[in-house]
Design a protein around this nucleic acid. Structure first.
Lengths: 360, 360
DNA sequence: ACAGTATGAACGGACACTTGA
DNA sequence: CTCAAGTGTCCGTTCATACTG
């Protein structure tokens, strides 16, 4: 028996109904089935070399006792945890939640469970702490979602743990899955230009976000290539609230006819601000969002936006992680790309005549 | 050395750059610091009985080696995992994601990490499987978010694992945290009635959802008490898409002046359908949502809705779980309530004159 | 020789004791 | 007798090896 036995003995003797009794072990199953615990282990791991009749007897014993393999003991023995860690900043951000959902689903199918660490403040210390929490030998690999802060090369992460960055700057140090922000933002910008707008303003996400920066870059490049003037960038924080605040400023200028918002939430706030200022979308101002949240097509007006495939993003992240964990591959710097696509709805239109028209 | 050493020896000898070397153990730290592993254990767990000078030496050695305690070994020895499991159906649902976020944050502060299992299909088997995955002795307790399917009493869950239901029917078997759906839905309905609407229609969430059913019940009761006629209920699936589909049907009737939607997403779809049918919100039809998503106040029109405190929900769930895990309390049947509140914005108004006016 | 089963030593850490000053 | 530090054992599984019919 040992410690556990004697510790619980007192309580158990009292006859407390939900007595926290020690869960059944392989040894218990073995005793009941009349075999060695080694045989039980083989059955639990679907190994060969077990007589079918014996296997059935063991399985029956397992069922009877409600045996579940102790993952801590297995992890200790094998050095593998069959668990993936996910570090994310904000799960109320639509994309992050969807990506996590997908990661969890795919990981489950591969026989891994998922440990989430939410980093509240985007400080280096907080991220490192999340890392420590996760890597206390408890996960086989880690996905970092939108981990802007990690761009800083001086941040040292514990070595030896496979990592994949979802929409983060991999540098040469990590593999990453990128939503091809560049293409998405370029397409959005070009869509607006092709409608005849003289230029396109940009309501960007926070400056420390990798995604936001990429979108700014692509927007800028598209404008340059088209020979359109480049207006100043406004930085929000992905929230509808920030979109609204900045929208009020933009609405005050009547030379703006097209805005590319960094995500759909900010676009919602922006459109609200424009509406309150008496400027109609898309008649006076065209707006493009990014993400294609499920509600986008039901908004007023239905939002033209860049669709992102979060399911594929999650799948790709897990795949890259497993290549490192199970395949033992070293794939630092490899970037897998998920393609976005523009979904044109009703928030974009040619500029009102006489205003902001672009010279051919 | 043993197994691990000899196993990795082959690879390490090849000089592979990121050679998977065995992580440092207490023994390694002990050797470097010139103490016994027991002393290292004491330092790692902030026990007393360690000389300050010795402690510093051990801490220095830990830093040098990058030592992190092996949670599997600790769990095996203590029988505790310091990990909470969360089972959820759909993380793209705003409320679920927010609740998970809060649970993760609070759990982290309490020194627990969070293991998420996403159940794709709401079948009993899927839930049981998620349970098995989580309870393979790997979590100390489980939070079930919106676990409608578990209402079925015949579903046997593994005993011995503390459980808390978030917005699920606890029956007498589990403790639960409830968002006080009843009060929220009643307030929403009464708000519409008090504006003078003859009655209030209801666009409900899926029938197998505990939250949805509660909201229906309260809406029904509020109508009855006010002596208002009870229109048939329409059931959606929480999505804007379903709100739109049902909204088209509702928009076809011109005797409807007020609708209470089961959540904000469905409200968005509903409003869109009404708009397409040429019916204005709130001039022709008033709409109330539920959740108060961050975008609600920026929608067109700004949405009157029932605010839910998901942060508090997460906090309460973790608190209840820890009472069972650490306090050893048996609190089956206990229900903790989180209070919602109505936020009146611009999607509700008195009915247009001559239509649907309610007799005083 | 072969199929199937038993044996004992790790894995890394925690705790009840024990020993040393 | 107090306080610091060490010893030995066990947690439940896996794996290499030895054993048996």
């Amino acid at each position: 028996m040992g410690r556990a036995g004697s510790t619980s003995a007192g309580a158990a003797a009292e006859g407390v109904p939900p007595a926290r009794t020690r869960p059944p072990s392989q040894a218990d199953v073995a005793a009941l089935a009349g075999v060695s615990s080694q045989t039980v282990s083989r059955v639990a791991n679907n190994k060969s070399n077990v007589d079918e009749e014996t296997r059935q007897r063991v399985l029956a014993a397992m069922r009877m006792l409600g045996y579940r393999t102790n993952t801590a003991a297995r992890a200790l023995a094998t050095g593998q945890f069959r668990m993936l860690g996910v570090i994310s900043f904000d799960l109320s951000a639509h994309g992050n939640a969807r990506t996590l959902q997908s990661i969890a689903a795919v990981a489950q199918d591969a026989g891994y469970s998922v440990n989430v660490a939410v980093v509240k403040t985007a400080t280096e210390g907080a991220v490192r702490q999340a890392f420590t929490q996760l890597t206390s030998q408890a996960v086989d690999g880690i996905v970092l979602i939108e981990a802007q802060i990690l761009d800083r090369p001086e941040l040292q992460l514990p070595p030896g743990v496979p990592i994949v960055m979802a929409d983060g700057n991999p540098g040469q140090r990590f593999p990453a899955v990128d939503n091809n922000q560049l293409l998405g933002a370029r397409t959005a910008t070009e869509h607006l230009l092709s409608l005849g707008h003289a230029t396109v303003w940009h309501l960007a996400g926070p400056q420390d976000s990798y995604s936001a920066r990429h979108r700014v870059t692509a927007w800028h490049a598209a404008l340059k290539e088209a020979g359109a003037p480049v207006p100043p960038v406004s930085y929000g924080d992905w929230s509808a609230e920030s979109g609204y605040a900045i929208g009020r400023e933009l609405a005050a200028r009547d030379d703006i006819t097209a805005v590319f918002a960094g995500n759909d939430h900010m676009a919602i706030g922006l459109i609200r601000a424009l509406a309150e200022a008496g400027r109609s979308v898309p008649d006076d101002v065209s707006v493009v969002g990014f993400d294609d949240i499920a509600e986008a097509r039901y908004l007023e007006p239905p939002l033209t936006t860049v669709h992102q495939d979060f399911e594929e993003m999650g799948r790709a992240c897990v795949a890259l992680l497993l290549r490192q964990i199970e395949g033992g591959e070293s794939i630092a710097g490899l970037v897998d790309s998920v393609e976005p696509r523009l979904v044109v709805r009703a928030s974009t239109a040619p500029p009102a005549k006489g205003r902001g028209v672009r010279k051919p």
